[in-house]
Structure formats: C-alpha cells, structure tokens
Design a binder for these strands. Structure first.
Length: 98
DNA sequence: ATGCCGGCTCAGC
DNA sequence: GGCTGAGCCGGCA
C-alpha cells in the first residue's frame, strides 16, 4: 500500500462518518490497509479549507478533542451538529461510529 | 542517510 | 480514570 492510497482510504472513510457521530484516529486507521493513528491525525491536520470532509468528527481514543491549533473550532462544529460534551470535555461513547 | 517530533495508542501502574 | 513510557511509524529539516 502506498501512502497516497492509504491517504485516499482515510479520506473516504472520514467522509462516511454520519453527521452527529464521531470516531477515533485509531478506528479510522484500522479500517485502512495499514495506516496508523498518527498518519490519520497528520492527514487531518493537512487538509486545506473547503475540502468538505468532516475532519472534526475524528477525535482521540479518550473521546476528547485533542488540543492543538484548531481544537476550539472543532469543538464548536461538533456542538453545532448536536454532539454533546460533558463537563470534562468528553463525548458520549454512544455517538461512536463503528 | 540521520535525528527529532507528532491532531495517537496501549499496556502498566 | 489519570499518568508514564514505549512504539520501531512517517514526514520533514
């Protein structure tokens, strides 16, 4: 598997995450043929604006939004589509997408 | 080629 | 559930 093919799989999978649901870097990675969680995180960080991918629906294994530059915007977008966060910033596990 | 660091994860405490 | 350390991975300087 070449990196570009892996990248393509990652994008395809992410684009399939339903609105109001979330998944994790590791889960996305496992759905590909060999990508790692870090590669997924990196792929998300590289996305240009207006690509149309729901990158904000991808969170870390603790079901929290990883702190980085766009973390605030990510939380806002999720909240905007109905994803609730508890007092500690964690997302309800029932919203996890397979 | 080399070395450092990461939008992470998982096993151990 | 939180903290720590390793992973043997890729991108990038």
């Amino acid at each position: 598997m070449s990196r570009s093919e892996l990248l393509e799989q990652i994008y395809t999978i992410v684009s399939r995450i339903p609105e109001g649901r979330v998944t994790t870097y590791g889960r996305v990675a496992k759905m590909t043929d060999g990508a790692t969680a870090r590669m997924v995180g990196r792929a998300m960080g590289q996305l240009p604006d207006g690509h149309g991918l729901p990158w904000h629906r991808v969170v870390n294994a603790s079901l929290k939004v990883t702190e980085h530059g766009g973390a605030v915007r990510q939380r806002e977008q999720l909240r905007a589509e109905g994803v609730a966060f508890d007092a500690r910033g964690r997302i309800n596990a029932e919203l996890l997408w397979p």
